[in-house]
Design a protein around this nucleic acid. Structure first.
Lengths: 341, 341
DNA sequence: CCTGAATATGTTAACCATAACCTAACACCG
DNA sequence: CGGTGTTAGGTTATGGTTAACATATTCAGG
């Protein structure tokens, strides 16, 4: 790779003159400019961004640290981040933590070393440590998707409470009274928020604490499968299942298929998170759809505000609304005596 | 962010001594080491990778340039790349080109500036220019998914010819004789290869050139929808559709649904690319499944070989086999006089 | 013809980390 | 006790770019 010095030699000028041509700064004679431009062309020179970054203390690079890019929800978030970053001539590094706090910290350390200008973080865990680590090193962070309790940090997320409330309310309106919620890890805010919305809807409908059926597992297909199996074994059996995310929904639907339980005739199913429209011919699942792309965009936009020094005194907690989409997987419960399993 | 000089001052030693502690090189007294380690701890110091990279001419960073991370196939490729890179302590920058050669070149220029150690490229177009650009700057490239004609470059891809042959053969074995292939842009090697495999199967089955129904569009859902509509309007109407990728398959299935054509009773459908198992409850589509994760892994592994100087004289063209999975979307054609539409 | 502003280009130092080289103290040997 | 090797640490220069400063040329106006 040619350096600015190589270009300078070839053009018969000093490196500084080449720099001026490159950055259009200061005075440059017309002939000199031409000579320099020719030399740049001939050598295929591109400036070394490392050297620039070392001087200017900015790398024009962001990092997106998430749990698993393979989850279509995060894929879309990532796309929103990348588009917004690209529009400002930033590039994005991406890192999968697989929900491992260890992997997360390792990545954050590497990212700090690589001097990224900012980090977009989907925390693996509800610990303030990763945030503190970044703040201690002056690296701006925006947390996506999940809340981090205790600590002050910019956050962009979906209104899980309201989304869960809406879905539960929808089921209640259809006549369901025994609704099981199959949710992710209890330590993660999305889980607790969705359970909170679910409980709120139940209590508003006059149901008691005892009517709530909360089953916690992980945000995975296999967990969804197992939770649904356990829900089917309950007496009285729930008439509706509320899946805490798309993976749990897929797992639950498979469990129902394997158990020969028809949806929605024998069991209604609703889910937080839609399935990607690019992989489904005929959307069937009643869902609350998260504004994944917008979350990526908004979080990145906030990060740029912080980078530009446009930082209001208070930290942001941007809560975007989810959209409920009623489809065929939810219907009225079967007409039976509601008190017999 | 603290620098090595800050640490040195705090520990009362020179920067070089700190460097020796960090890299475990040279002699260090036990007390000195302790003092330095304490200072590092207290300041939360992490070494500046930019400065190191500037000296060592390696950034431990790769770039993955692809068309759209939102396509589940590429998401999985990306995951394969990231896992392999992470195992060697490399980070990955990702870039969506949206099949635009312009965007692609802009990204490559930025990546060259940022001194990435290597590029994994899913080319937007069958032009050698991007490869030449990188090679001129001494940046190793591995091309994924698609062939680039004319030029010598390492490539890792699926055996499109054979995969398409298998799918076509499968339809022929079921008794289909009028099979339409709905494919992507004719300039992209995956399209031409899949059409080639399709044609080979037809001709082996004793069908003539005139029996081939090749319809080219784009690798998008809307293109799949339109192509299927046009296929339905043909006389004689095909009895089977071969979708060139997953998006085309989804579009085609939607067109069939909207036209009230049942699959597989009235129309068999097969597809190159599977749909992600994480979004489908009950896989239905007969497909050839690409080893997406392995493609990402293998390509990255090859890149590391090149970086390590383990470069055989000849360039690699690694062609991984696709796996045919027969499901319910393909069946025997309806028993009619095969010569009347 | 001289002065000062405008134009054009070069030199030095800094960003941060470290390889290569250099200095100094000490232990051990004959 | 001088010589030599080991241990422990510092100094300088380098990597590529550019801000700040310095120098040199040109030109207009008095």
């Amino acid at each position: 790779m040619a350096t600015i010095e190589d270009v300078a030699k070839r053009a018969g000028v000093s490196a500084m003159t080449v720099s001026r041509v490159l950055n259009n700064s200061g005075y440059i004679g017309a002939k000199t400019r031409e000579k320099v431009e020719r030399a740049i062309e001939e050598l295929g020179y591109v400036p070394n961004a490392l050297a620039r970054s070392l001087r200017f203390k900015t790398t024009h690079t962001l990092a997106l640290v998430l749990t698993d890019i393979t989850n279509s929800y995060f894929t879309t978030v990532a796309r929103g981040v990348e588009d917004m970053a690209n529009a400002r001539d930033f590039t994005v590094m991406f890192c999968n933590t697989d929900e491992s706090p260890d992997k997360e910290m390792k990545y954050l350390s590497v990212l700090a070393q690589k001097q990224v200008d900012g980090v977009l973080l989907v925390p693996a865990f509800s610990s303030p440590d990763p945030i503190l680590f970044l703040k201690a090193r002056g690296i701006p962070v925006v947390v996506l998707d999940r809340r981090i309790p205790v600590i002050e940090v910019d956050t962009v997320r979906t209104d899980s409470v309201r989304g869960a409330y809406q879905l539960t309310r929808h089921l209640l309106d259809l006549g369901h009274r025994r609704i099981a919620i199959l949710t992710g890890p209890v330590e993660i805010s999305t889980s607790t928020d969705r359970v909170a919305g679910y409980r709120r809807a139940l209590s508003e409908a006059g149901l008691s604490e005892a009517d709530a059926v909360v089953m916690g597992g992980a945000y995975t297909i296999s967990s969804g499968y197992q939770l649904a199996q356990r829900a089917l074994a309950l007496k009285p059996t729930p008439t509706a299942l509320f899946a805490g995310n798309n993976f749990i929904a897929i797992g639950a639907l498979r469990a129902l298929r394997d158990a020969g339980v028809r949806v929605p005739e024998e069991m209604s199913v609703v889910s937080f998170d839609d399935l990607p429209s690019t992989t489904v011919v005929d959307p069937f699942l009643t869902v609350v759809s998260q504004p994944a792309y917008a979350i990526g965009e908004q979080a990145t936009s906030r990060l740029f505000d912080v980078l530009a020094g446009r930082t209001p005194t208070t930290s942001l907690d941007l809560v975007l609304p989810a959209e409920m989409i009623v489809r065929q997987s939810s219907g009225a419960p079967r007409r039976e005596d509601p008190d017999t399993g």
